[in-house]
């Protein structure tokens, strides 16, 4: 699955303000809420689900990248947000290094196949170090969106 198929264009941030894990997750979920996802207390519930998942093991997979995620009944399809923290954020990553690029995934319950295919799309992009560096250098959300679309088309 291509990243542009599940990343919500309006939920991209080129300059996260949060400086710690919970703040990053809250900011990204808020970006999805502002983009029209989640109602009422759902966004707080999604934050809690993602934090609970992080407690099991960090989704900071190394090389400055993290993929915080959870399943939640408020979505009927995979939705994703992308954020860049230019200064890096400590995220308990496997290599103990700060994270600069975040891809958040919120997936419907009981769709494991969709989740795995989304991870494949994320991996296809993020294993390209030039792409990751370009994300980190992006000046605004539009540039990040263009990078994702161009990589998907390549």
């Amino acid at each position: 699955m291509r990243m542009s198929e599940f990343v919500i264009r309006e939920a991209i941030s080129a300059n996260l303000s949060a400086g710690q894990k919970e703040g990053v997750i809250r900011e990204m979920v808020e970006n999805l809420r502002l983009a029209g996802y989640f109602k009422g207390n759902e966004s707080e519930d999604v934050v809690k689900a993602i934090l609970k998942r992080e407690l099991l093991s960090s989704t900071g997979i190394g090389d400055g990248v993290a993929i915080p995620h959870a399943k939640h009944g408020s979505v009927d399809r995979m939705v994703g947000a992308v954020a860049v923290a230019p200064a890096g954020v400590p995220f308990d990553s496997v290599d103990n290094d700060p994270v600069f690029v975040f891809v958040m995934l919120v997936s419907p319950q009981e769709r494991p196949s969709e989740h795995l295919r989304a991870l494949e799309g994320v991996s296809r992009c993020l294993k390209d170090k030039t792409f990751v560096q370009s994300l980190r250098n992006a000046a605004n959300p539009q540039q990040i969106w263009d990078l994702i679309c161009n990589h998907d088309r390549a």
Binding site: I61, P112, S113, L116, L119, E120, S123, K127
Partner: peptide
């Protein structure tokens, strides 16, 4: 030894 590479497997049940 690479998460990003394993993610490319899409290994369902």
């Amino acid at each position: 030894k690479s998460m990003l590479m394993l993610m490319g497997l899409v290994a369902e049940q």
